[in-house]
């Protein structure tokens, strides 16, 4: 379908994006890679009044390592994450997870920031950042602030970001310990029916598509920290979750998948 009529301005830097959001208020919506927003506009599930296209704000693109932290600009594409030799060294989980998203065409345009702000519990990168324990940096009319990723996802497709804020970067502690990403789907290219990310040999574990937000599997993390064996730790993966039922899987099958995939991920990560 053709999207509803919309206005358009280009913001080629963070400053311009913040200024455009301030000027145009509620009707404005940021456009990054467009790989979530444009499909929604085509289905007319989203009808923004004005697009603020930050796709060419190059100050928001790039990966840099400083001490024990890797900083990634919000506009860095999935494909840039996938191919970054530096990221593969300091945070291989994130590089690998990016390579598992959609297909190459989607990865060329979709961005880390867009994926996080879209806050789809079925998406891959939000769960990966959750397992890694990152910090998100946002800028708005009142300056910049940091948001812990554990506080960022507030509901289905909802984040702690205010409508006039721009996510500019994600900071992640360097993570070279045992890691794994288990993404279960039936069709190539699809979102995960359930996914499990493990960082630092089980110190960070998160679940994809097991609730209305990406979830940290705290019970599994606690079990691993307490010295439990892999299968005992994995057996609590679905505890406290309320997974959705849809035509791919009902809730109890998702709970089963969470346990099985967590066990595979922990083994794969050498927990």
């Amino acid at each position: 379908m053709i999207p509803a009529a919309v206005g358009y301005v280009r913001a080629d830097s963070t400053e311009e994006a913040v200024a455009a959001l301030r000027e145009h208020g509620d009707e404005a919506k940021l456009l990054a890679g467009g790989q979530s927003l444009i499909p929604l506009m085509r289905l007319r599930l989203a009808r923004p009044g004005l697009l603020v296209d930050m796709g060419r704000a190059d100050d928001l693109r790039g990966i840099s390592v400083d001490g024990d932290t890797v900083s990634i600009g919000a506009l860095t594409s999935h494909s840039d994450l996938e191919h970054s030799a530096e990221l593969a060294e300091v945070c291989p989980l994130l590089a690998h997870v990016a390579s598992q998203i959609g297909d190459p065409a989607v990865r060329h345009r979709g961005t880390l920031g867009g994926s996080l702000v879209h806050a789809d519990p079925a998406s891959d990168l939000p769960a990966a950042v959750l397992a890694l324990g990152g910090t998100l940096v946002a800028t708005g009319p009142d300056g910049s602030r940091e948001i812990e990723v554990s506080d960022f996802f507030t509901g289905f497709l909802e984040s702690a970001l205010a409508a006039d804020e721009v996510l500019i970067a994600v900071r992640i502690p360097i993570s070279t310990g045992g890691w794994s990403y288990q993404k279960f789907n039936r069709r190539a290219q699809d979102w995960a029916i359930v996914g499990v990310a493990v960082a630092e040999s089980g110190a960070g574990v998160s679940l994809v598509n097991m609730g209305s937000t990406p979830l940290r599997a705290s019970a599994v993390e606690a079990a691993v920290a307490g010295g439990a064996g892999v299968s005992d730790a994995a057996s609590v993966a679905a505890d406290g979750t309320e997974p959705p039922s849809d035509n791919n899987a009902d809730a109890s099958y998702r709970e089963h998948l969470a346990r099985v995939l967590t066990e595979r991920a922990l083994v794969d990560a050498g927990a």
Binding site: Y8, L31, G34, Q35, I38, P39, R42, L51, S79, D103, P104, A105, V106, H108, R109, Q189
Partner: peptide
């Protein structure tokens, strides 16, 4: 955005032209 029939190259890289403005 799932069939790829619309794929073109934008600055040398594949992109789904139905998922771009």
């Amino acid at each position: 955005s799932s069939c790829g029939a619309c794929t073109v190259l934008v600055d040398g890289r594949s992109a789904k032209s139905c998922t771009m403005l």
